[in-house]
């Protein structure tokens, strides 16, 4: 039973089409990794759901309800939340305010400022500092925490480990494990294949805006996968 259904989606920036006729279905507690080269359309796929890329064709439904992608804020209201590439912490807000911003859609659930700070204690310690005063790894935790504040059914992470030290990556992987225990699904855009194995069950290889190959992470070392990733 799929929770998120992407049908025939074509999207891009301006007039340029970056992803073409893409179909993807996902159950509500699944963890999917999206891999592929730079420019393959991984981020564009995520950004299309949140109104930052232009949608040319196709539709997306969440829990059988049509998603209004152009509005941008509808995805969060329907149960998707994103930690975007580059983290996009608001410079004029404190750590706590950045978290509160994540709750803008008003969905209820287990995640609030306290439970997020239990997950990432550093955010609680530094809640009054400007969000951008945190280190890179802490900002990533803040971005994930902000997304959790929306109490999503599916959490989308765009390159969550980009530029982070191995120890910090371990912390984030552990936190993702805790988040999964709440029955939350994951979509992770990731360059590090090592990490894909640690957080995902299924993977999708994107190339030139199309799905080239997909399968379970158990088959990650197969020849077919290697061939797809080499393209």
């Amino acid at each position: 039973m799929s929770y998120l259904k992407i049908n025939n989606l074509s999207a891009g920036y301006g007039k340029a089409v970056v992803i073409r006729d893409l179909d993807l279905d996902m159950a509500k507690d699944e963890a999917i990794a999206i891999v592929g080269r730079n420019g393959a359309g991984k981020s564009t796929l995520l950004m299309a759901l949140f109104g930052k890329a232009t949608v040319f064709a196709g539709d997306v439904s969440v829990d059988d309800r049509q998603l209004n992608m152009a509005a941008g804020f509808d995805a969060t209201a329907k149960g998707l939340a994103v930690s975007p590439q580059g983290k996009l912490i608001l410079p004029n807000l404190t750590v706590k305010e950045n978290l509160l911003l994540g709750g803008a859609s008003g969905r209820n659930g287990v995640w609030d400022v306290n439970s997020v700070c239990d997950l990432f204690p550093i955010l609680g310690e530094r809640h009054n500092k400007p969000g951008v005063a945190l280190s890179g790894g802490q900002q990533q935790m803040l971005a994930i925490g902000r997304a959790l504040m929306a109490n999503p059914q599916i959490l989308l992470l765009d390159e969550p480990t980009e530029g982070l030290a191995p120890a910090v990556i371990d912390d984030i992987v552990d936190a993702l494990g805790v988040i999964r225990t709440q029955g939350i699904g994951l979509i992770v855009v990731e360059q590090h294949l090592n990490l894909v194995r640690r957080v995902a069950e299924r993977f999708v290889v994107l190339s030139k805006g199309e799905i080239l190959h997909q399968g379970s992470v158990d088959t990650f070392d197969s020849e077919a996968t290697k061939a797809a990733l080499a393209l």
Partner: peptide, 8 residues
């Protein structure tokens, strides 16, 4: 970004 380069 890559899209821009493709078109221009």
């Amino acid at each position: 970004m890559s899209a821009k380069q493709i078109t221009s």
